[in-house]
């Protein structure tokens, strides 16, 4: 009996299912290599940093959604929440409420929408995609309603600093959003892998019944992950607004697909219970490289959603195949 069991060294136990991550890292590498050869512009430092900057806000939101997906849920409202939180902050800035309060306001509105999602899913027992589809529409409606459809411009320099400043590290200017992304990635990863809450999140998605019988308040865990997802998405939304220097009510529409795709490509299973932050980070990078690659290769912009859709589906199919192979599905 014993030798049938594969032993894992202690360092690999905690969700760092390394093999899978190395796999997607390899895909990222091959993709980048291909683009470097096929296009002269890909491997320039400007381009690389543009990619990094652009994917940082997607990745930060994807950290949040991956927690939601790990519990077996989904959040379709992330695109709208990004726009709404950026907009609220922008409007507060224009009302001269100061940077600190304005940023706090934007973050709180994101967390609040997430909290409402959590309530609808855990207390009212709504299917997650319907609940968040509803809040997606509501949050987007607020974006239009509050602005009358006009973008908010002329944000203070001190705010745009967050999106545009490059921190000189070892002589290279690393964009601030990328630094924020890395810090948040580490924090969320530690939260998932080292704290009691993290284990409960995995347990709820892996076997909700077992989690409940072990005395875990599964409703509270769901409330927590949706709220955190809203909060992280708001961080992404603020960084995006700071980078673009304008808060448009139409911003980030359709981003929910990119964000979900990042998580799924990174190995987060839509059936719950599995996923790592490192994987999500690589997933988000792949998405952005693909996006940039399509532009550099002269792929029409409007076809991008179809390409992204195809990639998501491939990732899901791969996930299903992997599960079947492991005998989890019949």
């Amino acid at each position: 009996m014993r030798n049938r069991v594969s032993r894992r060294p202690l360092t690999q136990v905690f969700k760092f299912q390394r093999i899978q991550e190395i796999g997607i890292l390899l895909i990222l590498f091959i993709l980048s290599l291909f683009l470097s050869i096929a296009t002269p512009t890909f491997l320039t430092s400007t381009n690389i940093f543009n990619i990094l900057r652009a994917f940082s806000w997607i990745a930060i939101s994807a950290f949040g959604i991956s927690m939601v997906i790990i519990t077996g849920g989904i959040d379709l409202s992330v695109g709208s929440v990004m726009a709404l939180s950026g907009l609220i902050t922008a409007m507060m800035l224009r009302a001269n409420l100061g940077d600190f309060l304005s940023i706090l306001g934007g973050l709180l509105i994101g967390a609040f929408v997430g909290f409402i999602n959590g309530l609808l899913v855990s207390k009212a027992n709504l299917p997650p995609f319907v609940a968040t589809l509803g809040t997606m529409s509501i949050a987007r409606g607020f974006c239009y309603g509050l602005t009358g459809g006009w973008p908010v411009r002329e944000l203070p320099r001190s705010f745009m600093f967050w999106g545009q400043y490059d921190i000189p590290i070892l002589g290279i200017g690393i964009p601030l959003p990328v630094v924020v992304m890395i810090i948040l990635g580490i924090v969320v990863s530690l939260f998932l892998n080292r704290t009691v809450w993290g284990y409960k999140i995995y347990a709820v998605g892996g076997n909700e019944q077992a989690a409940r019988l072990s005395g875990i308040n599964t409703g509270r865990i769901k409330l927590l992950v949706y709220t955190l997802c809203g909060l992280l998405t708001a961080v992404g939304g603020l960084l995006m607004t700071a980078r673009l220097g304008v808060a448009a009510p139409t911003a980030a529409s359709g981003y929910e697909l990119d964000i979900i795709a990042s998580a799924v490509i990174g190995g987060t299973s839509l059936t719950g219970g599995e996923g790592t932050i490192l994987g999500v980070l690589i997933g988000a990078a792949i998405m952005q490289v693909l996006r940039t690659g399509m532009v550099l290769l002269g792929f029409p912009a409007y076809w991008q959603p179809s390409a992204i859709g195809a990639i998501i589906i491939l990732a899901i199919m791969f996930d299903q195949y992997r599960k079947k192979k492991m005998g989890l599905l019949r």
Partner: peptide
């Protein structure tokens, strides 16, 4: 009532 994708120790101490 075990969580399949967590390790033995975590399952033993779940909750």
């Amino acid at each position: 009532n075990l969580v399949p994708n967590l390790d033995i120790a975590t399952n033993i101490f779940l909750g």
